[in-house]
Design a protein around this nucleic acid. Structure first.
Lengths: 199, 199
DNA sequence: GCCTGTGAAGGCATTCACAGCA
DNA sequence: TGCTGTGAATGCCTTCACAGGC
């Protein structure tokens, strides 16, 4: 399942040139094996045609459906530092079904300013905005020390999915989906391979 | 192995209070099972004491050794947008063995400016800086369109590890380790779970 | 008694290989 | 002939359970 977004990106990169694609071609683009592609796609149902391949548009539609991208998701971002700004400005979100409906930061120098057309609000407005916009996903881009408190507040406001960029392992109540992106971790994994390769 | 950085972070968060830790405690902190912790740590050698637990400092030292963090790694960042700035300013790097030795961007409005004490250089300087600093890791935070070209240039300059934040699947020659962090992918995975949970 | 280290069992993901259909 | 769909085989990771030391 983790690979469906990858396939989706490859299909998007394909442009309007090709109307069909084989598992071999898609595997080559995604840097995986063709057997993997076929197994993965067969979970969505049998949309390929033997001897021919997959219809690009139809496949995109099916993957988007499986990922729940056929509707829009409302996203709030907490912490408007460089990383928060990068996410708010990220062009990839709007046309992939993610809409930033709230930006929050308790730095009074930031409150009231706009980023990517959205006004930065103080944290006390979080609960209200989450409820009125029915926000689905919360993104944490605060400093480490604030992250757990923010996670609690998001959960209390009714958010069911949290993406955490702060370098801190968070606890959330059951029923709240939590993902973590840790920049240090990524570099440490690279370090491991470099080390192992003898560099 | 992917979990070693996680354990390391937990140990760091522990502060100076505890000198020993059990697999149960560490599992609780890291949100994994204690059997996993023990299996993972036993790969490093048998550093635990039955009936007691693991010595925190010693364990940190061993994990750092396994991850290759006992030396410093030199990092260059290409693309100084919000994300590039966020990484350059990221406080977690210096004290974890990662040193930013170069910032590159071809935007003439940025070249010559400093971020976190490092001057932004034009792309034509990349090759020279990578070689003179013996840089190990390249981070790509450019727009999508430039990413593949940057990856090629990094590889040609001798970089053996690339961390790619651009939403683009890259091709690199064999022997170059490539990791990818895709913000859209992360949100799409959350979308999948929300969708599946019936939201 | 407590907690690690680790065989054994179980489950999940990947790969193989080929039947089946256009 | 070409490429998908899929059982079967393989390998890997996780979990269980407990023997072994402190």
């Amino acid at each position: 399942m983790q690979r469906l977004p990858l396939y989706l990106r490859c299909l998007e990169d394909l442009g309007t040139g090709n109307t069909r694609i084989s598992s071999d071609q898609l595997a080559e683009m995604a840097n995986v094996t063709s057997a993997k592609v076929r197994k993965d796609l067969s979970f969505l149902g049998s949309y390929g045609v033997r001897g021919v391949g997959y219809e690009v548009e139809h496949l995109r539609f099916q993957i988007e459906g499986a990922l729940g991208l056929s509707r829009d998701w409302a996203v709030v971002i907490v912490g408007v530092g460089n990383l928060g700004r990068a996410l708010a400005n990220y062009g990839g979100f709007p046309n992939r079904g993610f809409k930033v409906v709230g930006l929050f930061d308790d730095d009074s120098a930031k409150v009231g300013k706009k980023v990517a057309g959205t006004e930065i609000l103080p944290m006390r407005r979080l609960n209200g905005v989450v409820k009125s916009t029915k926000a689905d996903i919360g993104v944490i881009t605060t400093p480490t020390a604030a992250a757990q408190d923010v996670a609690d507040r998001l959960a209390n406001a009714g958010i069911k999915s949290i993406l955490n960029f702060a370098p801190q392992v968070l606890k959330v109540q059951e029923g709240v989906e939590l993902r973590r992106v840790d920049l240090s971790t990524e570099l440490q994994v690279l370090s491991f391979y470099l080390h192992r390769a003898g560099h």
